[in-house]
Design a binder for these strands. Structure first.
Lengths: 247, 247
DNA sequence: GCGATACATCTTGTATACAACCACCGGGCG
DNA sequence: CGCCCGGTGGTTGTATACAAGATGTATCGC
Protein backbone atom coordinates (compact mmCIF):
# COMPACT_ATOMS: atom_id res chain seq x y z
CA UNK A 1 0.00 0.00 0.00
CA UNK A 2 2.37 2.70 1.16
CA UNK A 3 5.18 0.64 -0.21
CA UNK A 4 4.51 1.77 -3.74
CA UNK A 5 6.04 5.11 -2.88
CA UNK A 6 9.34 3.74 -1.74
CA UNK A 7 11.90 4.01 -4.52
CA UNK A 8 14.79 3.36 -2.13
CA UNK A 9 17.05 1.53 -4.50
CA UNK A 10 14.75 -0.65 -6.55
CA UNK A 11 14.47 1.16 -9.82
CA UNK A 12 12.44 -1.18 -11.88
CA UNK A 13 13.12 -4.88 -12.16
CA UNK A 14 13.89 -5.44 -8.49
CA UNK A 15 10.75 -3.57 -7.54
CA UNK A 16 8.75 -5.62 -9.99
CA UNK A 17 10.23 -8.69 -8.37
CA UNK A 18 9.29 -7.56 -4.87
CA UNK A 19 5.75 -6.74 -5.91
CA UNK A 20 5.44 -9.90 -7.95
CA UNK A 21 6.62 -12.23 -5.22
CA UNK A 22 4.47 -10.42 -2.69
CA UNK A 23 1.45 -11.03 -4.85
CA UNK A 24 2.46 -14.63 -5.34
CA UNK A 25 2.59 -15.08 -1.60
CA UNK A 26 -0.50 -13.11 -0.59
CA UNK A 27 -2.62 -14.56 -3.34
CA UNK A 28 -1.90 -17.97 -1.90
CA UNK A 29 -0.18 -19.23 -5.03
CA UNK A 30 2.71 -20.31 -2.87
CA UNK A 31 1.78 -21.98 0.38
CA UNK A 32 3.41 -21.01 3.67
CA UNK A 33 6.49 -23.12 4.35
CA UNK A 34 6.92 -23.82 0.67
CA UNK A 35 10.32 -23.23 -0.78
CA UNK A 36 10.56 -20.90 -3.70
CA UNK A 37 13.41 -21.20 -6.13
CA UNK A 38 14.97 -18.21 -7.79
CA UNK A 39 14.78 -19.73 -11.20
CA UNK A 40 11.10 -20.58 -11.12
CA UNK A 41 10.21 -17.12 -9.83
CA UNK A 42 12.40 -15.50 -12.45
CA UNK A 43 10.72 -17.50 -15.21
CA UNK A 44 7.28 -16.81 -13.80
CA UNK A 45 7.84 -13.05 -13.73
CA UNK A 46 9.99 -12.83 -16.84
CA UNK A 47 12.84 -11.19 -14.94
CA UNK A 48 16.45 -12.24 -14.68
CA UNK A 49 17.67 -14.01 -11.58
CA UNK A 50 19.79 -11.15 -10.31
CA UNK A 51 16.98 -8.73 -9.45
CA UNK A 52 14.87 -11.64 -8.20
CA UNK A 53 17.67 -12.46 -5.84
CA UNK A 54 17.65 -8.90 -4.52
CA UNK A 55 13.88 -8.95 -4.23
CA UNK A 56 13.95 -12.18 -2.26
CA UNK A 57 16.55 -10.78 0.11
CA UNK A 58 14.40 -7.70 0.62
CA UNK A 59 11.33 -9.76 1.32
CA UNK A 60 13.24 -11.78 3.84
CA UNK A 61 14.14 -8.74 5.88
CA UNK A 62 10.58 -7.56 5.35
CA UNK A 63 9.52 -10.68 7.17
CA UNK A 64 7.36 -12.61 4.75
CA UNK A 65 10.14 -14.94 3.65
CA UNK A 66 12.69 -16.78 5.72
CA UNK A 67 16.13 -17.99 4.77
CA UNK A 68 16.64 -21.72 4.56
CA UNK A 69 19.86 -23.00 6.17
CA UNK A 70 20.96 -24.75 2.99
CA UNK A 71 20.32 -21.62 0.94
CA UNK A 72 17.28 -20.16 -0.69
CA UNK A 73 14.08 -18.94 0.85
CA UNK A 74 10.72 -20.25 1.95
CA UNK A 75 7.45 -18.52 2.63
CA UNK A 76 7.38 -17.74 6.32
CA UNK A 77 4.72 -19.38 8.40
CA UNK A 78 3.00 -17.56 11.23
CA UNK A 79 0.93 -18.80 14.10
CA UNK A 80 -1.93 -16.89 15.65
CA UNK A 81 0.36 -16.28 18.61
CA UNK A 82 2.88 -14.66 16.26
CA UNK A 83 0.24 -12.28 14.97
CA UNK A 84 -0.78 -11.42 18.52
CA UNK A 85 2.85 -10.82 19.43
CA UNK A 86 3.37 -8.61 16.41
CA UNK A 87 0.41 -6.52 17.46
CA UNK A 88 1.73 -6.35 21.00
CA UNK A 89 5.09 -5.30 19.65
CA UNK A 90 3.56 -2.55 17.60
CA UNK A 91 1.71 -1.36 20.69
CA UNK A 92 4.91 -1.29 22.69
CA UNK A 93 6.79 0.64 20.03
CA UNK A 94 4.00 3.09 19.31
CA UNK A 95 3.56 3.52 23.05
CA UNK A 96 7.21 4.39 23.37
CA UNK A 97 6.94 6.83 20.49
CA UNK A 98 3.96 8.50 22.13
CA UNK A 99 5.72 8.63 25.49
CA UNK A 100 8.81 10.20 23.98
CA UNK A 101 6.66 12.72 22.12
CA UNK A 102 4.99 13.66 25.40
CA UNK A 103 8.19 13.77 27.42
CA UNK A 104 10.17 15.73 24.89
CA UNK A 105 7.34 17.98 23.87
CA UNK A 106 6.20 18.79 20.37
CA UNK A 107 6.33 22.02 18.43
CA UNK A 108 3.24 24.21 18.11
CA UNK A 109 2.97 23.53 14.41
CA UNK A 110 3.11 19.78 15.00
CA UNK A 111 0.46 20.16 17.65
CA UNK A 112 -1.72 22.00 15.17
CA UNK A 113 -1.32 19.18 12.67
CA UNK A 114 -2.13 16.61 15.32
CA UNK A 115 -5.27 18.48 16.31
CA UNK A 116 -6.32 18.79 12.69
CA UNK A 117 -5.92 15.07 12.24
CA UNK A 118 -8.07 14.44 15.30
CA UNK A 119 -10.73 16.69 13.81
CA UNK A 120 -10.55 14.84 10.51
CA UNK A 121 -10.93 11.53 12.29
CA UNK A 122 -13.79 12.95 14.32
CA UNK A 123 -15.55 14.00 11.16
CA UNK A 124 -15.14 10.53 9.73
CA UNK A 125 -16.85 8.79 12.63
CA UNK A 126 -19.45 11.41 13.55
CA UNK A 127 -23.09 10.86 12.78
CA UNK A 128 -25.11 7.70 12.41
CA UNK A 129 -23.11 4.54 12.02
CA UNK A 130 -24.47 3.93 8.55
CA UNK A 131 -22.88 7.05 7.11
CA UNK A 132 -19.39 6.54 8.48
CA UNK A 133 -16.67 7.47 6.05
CA UNK A 134 -14.72 4.29 6.41
CA UNK A 135 -12.20 4.90 3.67
CA UNK A 136 -11.50 8.34 5.07
CA UNK A 137 -11.15 6.91 8.54
CA UNK A 138 -8.66 4.32 7.37
CA UNK A 139 -6.58 6.95 5.59
CA UNK A 140 -6.59 9.38 8.53
CA UNK A 141 -5.96 6.54 10.95
CA UNK A 142 -2.85 5.56 9.04
CA UNK A 143 -1.76 9.19 9.06
CA UNK A 144 -2.32 9.40 12.79
CA UNK A 145 -0.13 6.42 13.54
CA UNK A 146 2.49 7.72 11.18
CA UNK A 147 2.45 11.03 12.98
CA UNK A 148 2.92 9.41 16.37
CA UNK A 149 6.08 7.82 15.04
CA UNK A 150 7.30 11.16 13.73
CA UNK A 151 6.46 13.04 16.90
CA UNK A 152 8.73 10.76 18.89
CA UNK A 153 11.55 12.81 17.45
CA UNK A 154 13.64 9.67 17.11
CA UNK A 155 14.85 8.38 13.77
CA UNK A 156 15.74 5.10 15.43
CA UNK A 157 12.27 4.47 16.83
CA UNK A 158 10.64 5.64 13.64
CA UNK A 159 12.68 3.29 11.53
CA UNK A 160 11.94 0.34 13.77
CA UNK A 161 8.26 1.12 13.80
CA UNK A 162 8.21 1.21 10.03
CA UNK A 163 9.89 -2.16 9.99
CA UNK A 164 7.39 -3.76 12.34
CA UNK A 165 4.46 -2.41 10.36
CA UNK A 166 5.79 -4.09 7.25
CA UNK A 167 4.44 -7.34 8.54
CA UNK A 168 1.17 -7.57 6.69
CA UNK A 169 -1.06 -8.08 9.72
CA UNK A 170 0.54 -5.75 12.24
CA UNK A 171 -0.35 -2.42 10.68
CA UNK A 172 -2.94 -0.22 12.35
CA UNK A 173 -5.36 -0.63 9.47
CA UNK A 174 -4.79 -4.33 8.93
CA UNK A 175 -8.19 -5.53 10.10
CA UNK A 176 -10.25 -2.51 9.21
CA UNK A 177 -11.00 -3.40 5.63
CA UNK A 178 -12.28 -6.81 6.52
CA UNK A 179 -15.12 -5.71 8.72
CA UNK A 180 -16.98 -3.08 6.82
CA UNK A 181 -20.06 -5.25 6.89
CA UNK A 182 -20.02 -5.97 10.61
CA UNK A 183 -22.21 -3.46 12.46
CA UNK A 184 -20.67 -3.94 15.90
CA UNK A 185 -17.29 -3.19 14.44
CA UNK A 186 -18.29 0.27 13.30
CA UNK A 187 -19.11 1.39 16.80
CA UNK A 188 -15.69 0.17 17.88
CA UNK A 189 -14.22 2.79 15.58
CA UNK A 190 -15.82 5.42 17.77
CA UNK A 191 -14.11 3.87 20.76
CA UNK A 192 -10.82 3.81 18.88
CA UNK A 193 -11.23 7.46 18.10
CA UNK A 194 -11.72 8.21 21.78
CA UNK A 195 -8.36 6.61 22.37
CA UNK A 196 -6.86 8.72 19.61
CA UNK A 197 -8.10 11.83 21.40
CA UNK A 198 -6.71 10.59 24.69
CA UNK A 199 -3.31 9.94 23.10
CA UNK A 200 -3.19 13.36 21.52
CA UNK A 201 -4.27 14.99 24.76
CA UNK A 202 -1.67 13.11 26.77
CA UNK A 203 1.05 14.16 24.36
CA UNK A 204 -0.11 17.75 24.49
CA UNK A 205 -0.19 17.70 28.29
CA UNK A 206 3.18 15.99 28.35
CA UNK A 207 1.82 13.07 30.28
CA UNK A 208 4.26 10.43 29.14
CA UNK A 209 3.04 7.47 31.15
CA UNK A 210 -0.54 8.04 30.08
CA UNK A 211 0.41 8.45 26.44
CA UNK A 212 2.30 5.17 26.53
CA UNK A 213 -0.39 3.22 28.35
CA UNK A 214 -3.26 4.41 26.18
CA UNK A 215 -1.32 3.86 22.96
CA UNK A 216 -0.48 0.33 24.00
CA UNK A 217 -4.06 -0.39 24.82
CA UNK A 218 -5.12 1.15 21.54
CA UNK A 219 -3.08 -1.40 19.67
CA UNK A 220 -4.95 -4.16 21.45
CA UNK A 221 -8.00 -3.12 19.50
CA UNK A 222 -6.33 -4.88 16.61
CA UNK A 223 -6.00 -7.92 18.81
CA UNK A 224 -9.73 -7.90 19.43
CA UNK A 225 -10.38 -7.53 15.73
CA UNK A 226 -8.03 -10.43 15.09
CA UNK A 227 -9.98 -12.71 17.41
CA UNK A 228 -13.17 -11.62 15.76
CA UNK A 229 -11.92 -12.20 12.24
CA UNK A 230 -10.54 -15.62 13.11
CA UNK A 231 -14.02 -16.85 13.95
CA UNK A 232 -15.28 -16.16 10.46
CA UNK A 233 -13.38 -17.68 7.52
CA UNK A 234 -15.17 -15.36 5.13
CA UNK A 235 -13.73 -12.37 6.94
CA UNK A 236 -10.28 -13.96 7.17
CA UNK A 237 -9.91 -13.91 3.43
CA UNK A 238 -10.32 -10.17 3.39
CA UNK A 239 -7.21 -9.66 5.49
CA UNK A 240 -4.37 -10.09 3.01
CA UNK A 241 -1.65 -11.30 5.36
CA UNK A 242 -3.74 -13.90 7.08
CA UNK A 243 -3.01 -16.51 4.43
CA UNK A 244 0.38 -16.83 6.10
CA UNK A 245 -1.20 -17.83 9.40
CA UNK A 246 -1.38 -21.55 9.82
CA UNK A 247 -3.57 -22.61 12.74
CA UNK B 1 31.35 -10.90 17.69
CA UNK B 2 28.40 -13.26 17.79
CA UNK B 3 27.89 -12.59 14.12
CA UNK B 4 30.62 -15.00 13.16
CA UNK B 5 28.26 -17.84 13.95
CA UNK B 6 25.55 -16.74 11.58
CA UNK B 7 25.76 -18.72 8.38
CA UNK B 8 22.27 -17.64 7.27
CA UNK B 9 22.88 -17.52 3.58
CA UNK B 10 26.32 -15.99 3.23
CA UNK B 11 28.48 -18.92 2.39
CA UNK B 12 31.83 -17.38 1.75
CA UNK B 13 32.35 -14.40 -0.48
CA UNK B 14 29.31 -12.49 0.67
CA UNK B 15 30.31 -13.11 4.27
CA UNK B 16 33.82 -11.93 3.51
CA UNK B 17 32.28 -8.84 2.00
CA UNK B 18 30.15 -8.15 5.05
CA UNK B 19 33.07 -8.61 7.41
CA UNK B 20 35.40 -6.63 5.18
CA UNK B 21 33.11 -3.65 4.79
CA UNK B 22 32.33 -3.72 8.50
CA UNK B 23 36.01 -3.52 9.26
CA UNK B 24 36.44 -0.76 6.71
CA UNK B 25 33.74 1.22 8.45
CA UNK B 26 34.64 0.54 12.05
CA UNK B 27 38.34 1.08 11.48
CA UNK B 28 37.48 4.54 10.29
CA UNK B 29 38.89 3.97 6.81
CA UNK B 30 35.61 5.26 5.43
CA UNK B 31 34.22 8.30 7.15
CA UNK B 32 30.55 8.53 8.17
CA UNK B 33 28.46 10.06 5.40
CA UNK B 34 30.97 9.02 2.80
CA UNK B 35 29.65 7.18 -0.20
CA UNK B 36 31.15 3.83 -0.94
CA UNK B 37 31.12 2.48 -4.44
CA UNK B 38 30.70 -1.18 -5.17
CA UNK B 39 33.60 -1.26 -7.54
CA UNK B 40 36.14 0.27 -5.18
CA UNK B 41 35.07 -2.05 -2.38
CA UNK B 42 35.21 -5.03 -4.68
CA UNK B 43 38.72 -4.13 -5.80
CA UNK B 44 39.82 -3.42 -2.26
CA UNK B 45 38.63 -6.81 -1.01
CA UNK B 46 39.40 -8.77 -4.16
CA UNK B 47 35.83 -9.97 -4.50
CA UNK B 48 33.49 -9.65 -7.42
CA UNK B 49 30.80 -7.01 -7.39
CA UNK B 50 27.88 -9.40 -7.01
CA UNK B 51 28.63 -10.61 -3.48
CA UNK B 52 29.68 -7.09 -2.52
CA UNK B 53 26.31 -5.92 -3.63
CA UNK B 54 24.63 -8.49 -1.39
CA UNK B 55 26.92 -7.57 1.48
CA UNK B 56 26.09 -3.89 1.13
CA UNK B 57 22.39 -4.64 1.11
CA UNK B 58 22.84 -6.71 4.27
CA UNK B 59 24.77 -3.98 6.00
CA UNK B 60 22.08 -1.51 5.12
CA UNK B 61 19.41 -3.51 6.87
CA UNK B 62 21.91 -4.05 9.66
CA UNK B 63 21.91 -0.31 10.07
CA UNK B 64 25.49 0.80 9.50
CA UNK B 65 24.90 1.81 5.88
CA UNK B 66 22.09 3.81 4.37
CA UNK B 67 20.76 3.76 0.84
CA UNK B 68 21.33 6.86 -1.25
CA UNK B 69 18.31 8.01 -3.28
CA UNK B 70 20.26 8.00 -6.52
CA UNK B 71 21.52 4.50 -5.84
CA UNK B 72 24.38 3.10 -3.88
CA UNK B 73 25.15 3.35 -0.21
CA UNK B 74 26.81 5.64 2.27
CA UNK B 75 28.14 5.08 5.75
CA UNK B 76 25.37 5.97 8.14
CA UNK B 77 25.97 8.84 10.49
CA UNK B 78 24.69 8.78 14.05
CA UNK B 79 24.23 11.52 16.56
CA UNK B 80 24.62 11.07 20.29
CA UNK B 81 20.84 11.34 20.49
CA UNK B 82 20.55 8.41 18.11
CA UNK B 83 22.76 6.29 20.33
CA UNK B 84 20.69 7.26 23.36
CA UNK B 85 17.51 6.38 21.49
CA UNK B 86 18.90 3.04 20.42
CA UNK B 87 19.70 2.26 24.03
CA UNK B 88 16.23 3.36 25.08
CA UNK B 89 14.77 1.18 22.36
CA UNK B 90 16.71 -1.82 23.55
CA UNK B 91 15.48 -1.16 27.07
CA UNK B 92 11.89 -1.01 25.87
CA UNK B 93 12.16 -4.23 23.91
CA UNK B 94 14.05 -6.13 26.59
CA UNK B 95 11.56 -4.80 29.11
CA UNK B 96 8.74 -6.17 27.02
CA UNK B 97 10.50 -9.51 26.72
CA UNK B 98 10.94 -9.66 30.48
CA UNK B 99 7.33 -8.69 31.10
CA UNK B 100 6.05 -11.34 28.72
CA UNK B 101 8.31 -13.92 30.35
CA UNK B 102 6.86 -12.99 33.73
CA UNK B 103 3.25 -12.86 32.57
CA UNK B 104 3.38 -16.09 30.61
CA UNK B 105 5.55 -17.92 33.05
CA UNK B 106 8.65 -19.93 32.35
CA UNK B 107 9.32 -23.63 32.59
CA UNK B 108 11.17 -25.06 35.61
CA UNK B 109 14.15 -25.99 33.48
CA UNK B 110 14.38 -22.47 32.10
CA UNK B 111 14.15 -21.12 35.60
CA UNK B 112 17.02 -23.37 36.64
CA UNK B 113 19.12 -22.06 33.76
CA UNK B 114 18.28 -18.51 34.68
CA UNK B 115 19.27 -19.07 38.29
CA UNK B 116 22.50 -20.70 37.22
CA UNK B 117 23.31 -17.69 35.07
CA UNK B 118 22.65 -15.39 38.01
CA UNK B 119 25.04 -17.47 40.10
CA UNK B 120 27.67 -17.30 37.38
CA UNK B 121 27.31 -13.54 37.20
CA UNK B 122 27.46 -13.33 40.98
CA UNK B 123 30.69 -15.25 40.97
CA UNK B 124 32.17 -12.91 38.42
CA UNK B 125 31.54 -9.78 40.47
CA UNK B 126 32.06 -11.16 43.97
CA UNK B 127 35.11 -10.23 45.92
CA UNK B 128 37.40 -7.21 45.80
CA UNK B 129 36.98 -5.02 42.77
CA UNK B 130 40.52 -5.70 41.59
CA UNK B 131 39.88 -9.37 41.03
CA UNK B 132 36.67 -9.07 39.06
CA UNK B 133 36.43 -11.50 36.19
CA UNK B 134 35.52 -8.92 33.59
CA UNK B 135 35.69 -11.19 30.56
CA UNK B 136 33.54 -13.73 32.31
CA UNK B 137 31.09 -11.05 33.31
CA UNK B 138 30.80 -9.80 29.76
CA UNK B 139 30.17 -13.28 28.45
CA UNK B 140 27.58 -14.16 31.09
CA UNK B 141 25.99 -10.74 30.72
CA UNK B 142 25.49 -11.33 27.02
CA UNK B 143 24.03 -14.74 27.81
CA UNK B 144 21.67 -13.20 30.33
CA UNK B 145 20.29 -10.70 27.88
CA UNK B 146 19.97 -13.40 25.25
CA UNK B 147 18.05 -15.53 27.70
CA UNK B 148 15.61 -12.73 28.50
CA UNK B 149 14.80 -12.54 24.81
CA UNK B 150 14.26 -16.30 24.65
CA UNK B 151 12.14 -16.42 27.79
CA UNK B 152 9.66 -14.01 26.26
CA UNK B 153 8.42 -17.01 24.32
CA UNK B 154 7.92 -14.81 21.27
CA UNK B 155 9.79 -15.36 18.03
CA UNK B 156 8.66 -11.93 16.88
CA UNK B 157 10.07 -10.07 19.87
CA UNK B 158 13.21 -12.15 19.82
CA UNK B 159 13.85 -11.41 16.18
CA UNK B 160 13.32 -7.70 16.68
CA UNK B 161 15.57 -7.64 19.68
CA UNK B 162 18.32 -9.32 17.71
CA UNK B 163 17.92 -6.71 15.03
CA UNK B 164 18.20 -3.79 17.41
CA UNK B 165 21.30 -5.24 19.01
CA UNK B 166 22.99 -5.36 15.64
CA UNK B 167 23.62 -1.68 15.94
CA UNK B 168 27.17 -1.59 17.20
CA UNK B 169 26.54 0.59 20.22
CA UNK B 170 23.21 -0.71 21.44
CA UNK B 171 24.25 -4.13 22.67
CA UNK B 172 24.33 -4.82 26.40
CA UNK B 173 28.09 -5.21 26.39
CA UNK B 174 28.84 -2.30 24.09
CA UNK B 175 30.48 -0.06 26.66
CA UNK B 176 31.89 -2.67 28.97
CA UNK B 177 35.15 -3.29 27.16
CA UNK B 178 36.03 0.34 27.09
CA UNK B 179 36.11 0.90 30.79
CA UNK B 180 38.20 -1.84 32.24
CA UNK B 181 40.62 0.73 33.57
CA UNK B 182 38.06 2.95 35.24
CA UNK B 183 37.69 1.99 38.91
CA UNK B 184 34.29 3.58 39.47
CA UNK B 185 32.94 1.62 36.57
CA UNK B 186 33.71 -1.70 38.15
CA UNK B 187 31.52 -1.03 41.12
CA UNK B 188 28.71 -0.18 38.73
CA UNK B 189 28.87 -3.78 37.57
CA UNK B 190 27.82 -4.81 41.05
CA UNK B 191 24.84 -2.52 40.77
CA UNK B 192 24.02 -3.93 37.34
CA UNK B 193 24.12 -7.40 38.79
CA UNK B 194 21.64 -6.36 41.47
CA UNK B 195 19.32 -5.39 38.67
CA UNK B 196 19.89 -8.74 37.01
CA UNK B 197 18.81 -10.44 40.20
CA UNK B 198 15.75 -8.23 40.46
CA UNK B 199 14.77 -9.02 36.87
CA UNK B 200 15.15 -12.74 37.40
CA UNK B 201 13.20 -12.56 40.64
CA UNK B 202 10.41 -10.56 39.04
CA UNK B 203 10.12 -13.09 36.21
CA UNK B 204 10.08 -15.96 38.69
CA UNK B 205 7.41 -14.25 40.80
CA UNK B 206 5.46 -13.41 37.63
CA UNK B 207 5.56 -9.72 38.40
CA UNK B 208 5.30 -8.40 34.88
CA UNK B 209 5.26 -4.68 35.57
CA UNK B 210 8.28 -4.90 37.84
CA UNK B 211 10.20 -7.03 35.36
CA UNK B 212 9.55 -4.50 32.61
CA UNK B 213 10.42 -1.45 34.69
CA UNK B 214 13.64 -2.85 36.11
CA UNK B 215 14.79 -4.16 32.74
CA UNK B 216 14.18 -0.77 31.17
CA UNK B 217 16.11 0.95 33.89
CA UNK B 218 18.87 -1.61 33.55
CA UNK B 219 19.38 -0.59 29.95
CA UNK B 220 19.90 2.97 31.07
CA UNK B 221 23.15 1.87 32.67
CA UNK B 222 24.45 1.82 29.12
CA UNK B 223 23.26 5.37 28.77
CA UNK B 224 25.27 6.38 31.82
CA UNK B 225 28.29 4.59 30.44
CA UNK B 226 27.78 6.38 27.14
CA UNK B 227 27.85 9.78 28.81
CA UNK B 228 30.96 8.76 30.70
CA UNK B 229 32.77 7.49 27.63
CA UNK B 230 31.90 10.59 25.64
CA UNK B 231 33.87 12.74 28.06
CA UNK B 232 37.07 10.88 27.38
CA UNK B 233 38.23 10.59 23.75
CA UNK B 234 40.67 7.89 24.74
CA UNK B 235 37.82 5.73 25.98
CA UNK B 236 35.69 6.53 22.95
CA UNK B 237 38.11 4.80 20.66
CA UNK B 238 37.68 1.58 22.55
CA UNK B 239 34.00 1.39 21.68
CA UNK B 240 33.98 0.17 18.09
CA UNK B 241 30.74 1.68 16.87
CA UNK B 242 31.41 5.13 18.22
CA UNK B 243 33.35 6.16 15.14
CA UNK B 244 29.97 6.46 13.47
CA UNK B 245 28.83 9.07 15.97
CA UNK B 246 29.39 12.55 14.75
CA UNK B 247 28.92 15.21 17.42
C1' DG C 1 31.09 36.74 -18.18
C1' DC C 2 27.44 33.68 -17.20
C1' DG C 3 24.35 30.14 -18.22
C1' DA C 4 22.85 26.16 -20.61
C1' DT C 5 23.58 22.18 -23.21
C1' DA C 6 26.02 18.28 -24.81
C1' DC C 7 29.47 14.97 -24.06
C1' DA C 8 32.38 11.94 -21.43
C1' DT C 9 33.16 9.22 -17.51
C1' DC C 10 31.85 6.80 -13.73
C1' DT C 11 28.25 4.68 -11.32
C1' DT C 12 24.77 1.33 -10.49
C1' DG C 13 21.27 -2.04 -12.48
C1' DT C 14 20.62 -6.19 -15.26
C1' DA C 15 21.50 -10.37 -17.80
C1' DT C 16 23.88 -14.49 -18.58
C1' DA C 17 27.40 -17.97 -18.14
C1' DC C 18 30.01 -20.77 -15.08
C1' DA C 19 31.25 -23.12 -10.75
C1' DA C 20 30.36 -25.21 -6.44
C1' DC C 21 27.30 -27.22 -3.46
C1' DC C 22 23.42 -30.04 -1.73
C1' DA C 23 20.07 -33.43 -2.08
C1' DC C 24 18.17 -37.20 -3.89
C1' DC C 25 18.40 -41.65 -6.13
C1' DG C 26 20.32 -45.86 -7.58
C1' DG C 27 23.41 -49.50 -7.15
C1' DG C 28 26.71 -52.20 -4.84
C1' DC C 29 28.67 -54.24 -0.79
C1' DG C 30 28.52 -56.03 3.90
C1' DC D 1 17.83 -57.00 3.73
C1' DG D 2 19.96 -52.80 5.25
C1' DC D 3 23.49 -49.45 5.03
C1' DC D 4 26.84 -46.91 2.69
C1' DC D 5 28.80 -44.84 -1.28
C1' DG D 6 28.95 -42.66 -5.70
C1' DG D 7 26.74 -40.40 -9.40
C1' DT D 8 23.50 -37.08 -11.29
C1' DG D 9 20.17 -33.41 -11.43
C1' DG D 10 18.97 -29.18 -9.80
C1' DT D 11 19.82 -25.51 -6.86
C1' DT D 12 22.18 -21.42 -5.23
C1' DG D 13 26.65 -18.63 -5.23
C1' DT D 14 29.91 -16.05 -8.08
C1' DA D 15 32.00 -13.68 -11.90
C1' DT D 16 31.85 -10.90 -15.85
C1' DA D 17 29.92 -8.40 -19.69
C1' DC D 18 26.65 -5.06 -21.10
C1' DA D 19 23.16 -1.36 -20.72
C1' DA D 20 21.14 2.52 -18.70
C1' DG D 21 21.31 6.23 -15.73
C1' DA D 22 23.50 10.06 -13.28
C1' DT D 23 26.92 13.40 -12.49
C1' DG D 24 30.40 16.55 -13.50
C1' DT D 25 32.85 19.25 -16.86
C1' DA D 26 33.93 21.70 -20.82
C1' DT D 27 32.54 24.24 -24.52
C1' DC D 28 29.49 27.00 -27.10
C1' DG D 29 26.05 30.51 -27.39
C1' DC D 30 23.98 34.58 -25.64
Amino acid sequence: MADAVRPEKASSQTLKGVLGVRDLVFSGTIAPGERLSEISVSEHLGISRTPIRAALARLEQEGILEAIPSGGYAVRQFSVADVADAIELRGVLEGTAARLAAERGITPSCLANLRQLIRDLDAAVTGPVETLDLDGYIAFNAQFHEMIAELSGSRIIQRELERVMQLPFSGPSAFLNAQTSVPAFRTSLVFGQMQHRAIAHAIEMREGARAEAVTREHARLARINLDFVLKDPALMQRVPGLVLVSN
